[in-house]
């Protein structure tokens, strides 16, 4: 991936390139794991984004001199439909399987995005996701910063992936 490294941005910024990496890897996760095609809405950049959903997974994006958060927020209907295809049963409440399912999905989505970003010269590390449960909950960041928001539709149901950053660093391979 040497060619990509030469084109790395000087700092981690929420660019169209990052949006493309996030979009591609989220789509790949759902295709590989569930054989489902996720449709992507238009990415947008917001300054004070508040995540909303019924079940969300959030994970710190850890890299030297940078703090960031990846959040995957599902309405209940969306995650119920996804998991019903795997477990062959109907979901009517946010039980342990739903919480764990969102946790593992967040974990896999972050690992794929991390891999994609690190191929462009960054050095993100794995971290452990947290799960937030509550009907139409909102997630406010203590230190707000720019947020990349990517809306997706899966089998007619919406969900959202977002990255909020609070700093910037140079890619490890950039001179």
């Amino acid at each position: 991936m040497g060619a990509l490294k030469k084109n790395c941005p000087p700092e981690f910024q929420l660019t169209d390139q990052v949006a493309t990496i996030v979009e591609k890897n989220v789509r790949d996760v759902f295709l590989s794991m569930f054989n489902l095609e996720a449709e992507t809405g238009k990415p947008r950049f917001e300054q004070d984004h508040v995540n909303q959903g019924d079940v969300s997974g959030t994970v710190g994006m850890v890299q030297e001199e940078m703090e960031g958060t990846l959040t995957v927020s599902f309405p209940k209907r969306t995650i119920y439909n996804i998991l019903a295809q795997i477990y062959n049963r109907e979901f009517t409440s946010v039980d342990q399987s739903v919480k764990e399912g969102v946790g593992e999905l967040t974990n896999v989505i972050y690992s794929m995005i991390k891999r994609g970003l690190n191929e462009t010269g960054y050095d993100f590390k794995m971290a452990i996701p947290d799960i937030i449960v509550g009907d139409n909950h909102q997630i406010f960041k203590i230190q707000t910063g720019p947020t990349l928001v990517l809306p997706f539709v899966l089998s007619g149901e919406a969900f959202e992936v977002s990255i909020t950053i609070r700093g910037g660093v140079r890619p490890k391979n950039r001179h």
Binding site: I86, Y87, S97, E100, G101, G103, E104, L105, N107
Partner: peptide
């Protein structure tokens, strides 16, 4: 440790 991954792998 995740039931989802075990179930998916079994399938």
């Amino acid at each position: 440790d995740f039931e989802l991954m075990r179930t998916m792998l079994k399938r």
